[in-house]
Design a protein around this nucleic acid. Structure first.
Lengths: 228, 228
DNA sequence: CGTGCGCTTGACTTTTTTCAATAAAGGTGG
DNA sequence: CCACCTTTATTGAAAAAAGTCAAGCGCACG
């Protein structure tokens, strides 16, 4: 019954009845995707959703010219593709494994039954979606209200916050991907990183970034300050 | 029983048991806001959510310099502020009545009880949130992947689609607000409208906009074409 | 009838992207 | 372990897009 224990540790499935775990285990499909492998594409039929067991998956939009805007990067324990399940429409974005990733796939119909039976599951799912909407609000705010240095500063502070205020950060993604996450391109990111370094706000080498002037970064993020 | 009938016609409350309508009617607070009146602010405690009965409400973020990014414009039958209910955190944006608006307020705790009792209510709410995430994905895509002419073209086509393909559109909001919705400023919007007119894509006067070259607009929206 | 707001236009500045070239890093097979 | 090749990152110069500032028009509303 290893599988059931695994499910019980997922936040999304917290606090369910034993029977629910068994049912979940019955309907899921265990899948593995290789690094770079495509999981689904925008406009594919949304026949179910996924839950990451190990690895990382990026959800992104693509422009005609090939520029990509990353919407999310998800890791273990996080579900993705649920929106299509509840709207009954197609996936609104693409999903690709960033490294070898194991995921559980939950078919739409069967999962719908389960959720109908257990309000806790529905409430958990509501919390997940709400949290996601909140993150999107922040992303939209950044994209439209801040220029790139502000977005980057906000992102660095966010990373630091996740690490309980740590000053030494290690990027978990390539700078190309970070650019995609910030809604810009690698060249621009590179320049801004360099400028932040010159102004003594950060010290960056490779994927290591050290925050030297937190207050300065906060001012940048809020728009009170700008880079020379 | 007028109130209950009113509730039964709201998509969010579709298909509930009679008892649920009575309960909903018991907990709601009937409120009216004047044009321009503030309903809640970003970072206010999320003590409940709202449902619009009549009027229109805009949800928006504000930058330090006062530029506003409109996240949503909601009308009758649409709920707003629910994210705070399910995350237990503060509101992620501001809400303001765009005209005299009547809303029902549902206190967080009481509503939580109801949702726990009725999976249909939870499922409806999931559908609403999913739909919203989908719209946000589109907004993010537009903000980061398209330049302003493309966003405007996409928006005009969207308006036309809502009107079943009508060619004559009437803006329901001021151009200032349209600018906020598109993530730009009034001056830029004004210029682009003028350029689209010169190129024979549209004809605009005041709040009337006539689409003259749908294919051209589609090309703009997808990035295949650009304005001279 | 004047004040104010929404809208437009012009000139100018800033920010970001594009294009191109090069450097550094990382993995693969010999 | 090294040479090779691909991917990732950086930098400069030029072009394009959007934003700022300022001025002016027209229309609604008190």
């Amino acid at each position: 019954m290893r599988l059931i224990d695994q499910l019980a540790n997922i936040p999304l499935f917290q606090g369910l009845a034993q029977k629910q775990y068994e049912d979940l285990a019955m309907i899921l499909v265990d899948q593995v995707f290789q690094r770079g492998e495509n999981i689904f594409n925008e406009d594919d039929e949304g026949v179910g959703f996924y839950l990451i067991i190990s690895g990382r998956v990026k959800i992104f939009k693509l422009s005609l010219e090939g520029k990509e805007q990353i919407l999310h990067i998800f890791g273990p324990g996080e579900p993705f593709g649920e929106v299509a399940v509840f709207t009954g429409k197609r996936f609104p974005a693409n999903a690709e494994a960033m490294e070898e990733s194991r995921v559980f796939f939950f078919p739409r119909k069967a999962f719908g039954e389960l959720i109908r039976q257990d309000p806790s599951l529905a409430l958990n799912m509501l919390a997940v979606l709400s949290h996601r909407l909140r993150r999107f609000s922040a992303l939209i705010e950044n994209l439209s209200l801040k220029e790139v240095p502000g977005r980057l500063a906000a992102h660095l502070l966010y990373l630091s916050e996740i690490k309980k205020g740590a000053i030494d950060l290690t990027l978990e993604i390539s700078k190309n991907q970070l650019a995609g996450l910030l809604g810009t391109i690698p060249e621009t990111l590179s320049r801004i990183l360099a400028r932040m370094g010159k102004e003594g706000l950060i010290k960056s080498s490779g994927r290591q970034i050290k925050l030297l002037d937190r207050k300065g970064l906060e001012e940048l993020a809020s728009g009170e300050r700008r880079l020379a």
